[in-house]
């Protein structure tokens, strides 16, 4: 105990929890083009700087200034950076030889890769799968949809943020190497991709409800094209529209243009009675 007093202030569990809560609530409040989440980061770490330097205001000022620099990452998985930064600032305050550049470099070099990981898992995998399931319920008028979605997302958001900060704080820089190079991330994305793609295949049939309306009379016999298609590939039209749109987006066409093309196609097709 005596040793700790000599080497400076130690952060408690509660300090970390409060920092987590501040980041969780405030990260995007003043989100802007100039510095993205910088104000959120400074708000997260400000009180910690004050605690670390109770009677060195100039160190608090230097700390606030270096954490007001441009910062942008995925707020949940990227919070590993916050944990590491807090650990580094604590050691620096205790007199360890950690330069300001080390901290700044660490933040700016990690925010990109972690944003990539976080956006993939949160935005492209976890949320769409949960959303898809909840939309299934909601489209039949079941309140289970919004309820499960709200709990599923809020729970995920806070849990991952909290775990990331804690892990980052406990493990320091080694935490990131584990995440970036370990097989866990790859396995997780493969798992979610398979699950997501399978569900997405079902969504094509469930949510894209357009169908062929065309019918004609040949030699006194009525031909309903929908029945013909259904015998070969049911739901072929929704699948074709999805694949064509997807390929167009992949080829670099802007999504808004793809949207407008579909709009025109459906408007004309519907008005002429070819599709319904």
């Amino acid at each position: 105990m005596a040793e700790k007093v000599e080497t400076g202030v130690s952060l408690t569990q509660k300090d970390i929890e409060m920092a987590t809560l501040r980041w969780w609530l405030m990260s995007h409040l003043s989100y802007n083009y100039q510095r993205m989440q910088a104000g959120g980061f400074a708000s997260m770490i400000g009180p910690i700087m004050k605690k670390l330097y109770p009677d060195k205001p100039e160190e608090v000022i230097a700390g606030l200034k270096r954490h007001m620099m441009f910062f942008n990452t995925e707020p949940r998985w990227g919070a590993v950076i916050h944990g590491i930064t807090i650990a580094l600032e604590e050691q620096k305050a205790k007199g360890e030889d950690i330069s300001e550049e080390t901290i700044i470099d660490l933040k700016s070099s990690l925010m990109g890769p972690l944003a990539g990981i976080g956006d993939t898992i949160s935005g492209a995998l976890y949320k769409p799968v949960l959303l898809g399931i909840c939309l299934g319920w909601a489209s039949t008028g079941s309140f289970l949809g919004p309820l499960v979605f709200a709990i599923g997302m809020l729970g995920y958001d806070y849990t991952i943020t909290r775990l990331s900060i804690r892990k980052g704080y406990q493990l320091g820089t080694t935490a990131v190497t584990t995440i970036l190079e370990g097989g866990l991330f790859k396995k997780l994305t493969t798992f979610f991709s398979i699950m997501g793609l399978f569900v997405l295949g079902i969504m094509v049939c469930k949510f894209i409800t357009v169908d062929v309306a065309l019918q004609t009379v040949v030699a006194g016999k009525k031909i309903v094209f929908k029945e013909l298609f259904d015998q070969i590939v049911p739901k072929a039209l929704p699948l074709a529209l999805t694949i064509v749109s997807w390929r167009a987006i992949m080829k670099g066409y802007r999504v808004i243009n793809v949207l407008l093309c579909l709009f025109a196609f459906a408007l004309i097709g519907g008005a002429l009675g070819i599709i319904k």
């Binding site: 999504v255 949207l259 579909l262 599709i275």
Partner: peptide, 30 residues
Amino acid sequence: AGFNTVGKVLPAVGVAMLLKYMARKDLLVF
């Protein structure tokens, strides 16, 4: 009638955008 058809087709954009993020060549079979 055309207007209603548009509403049935537009979800294809949502699914296609999602496919862009999720699709990996080796997993597309799923």
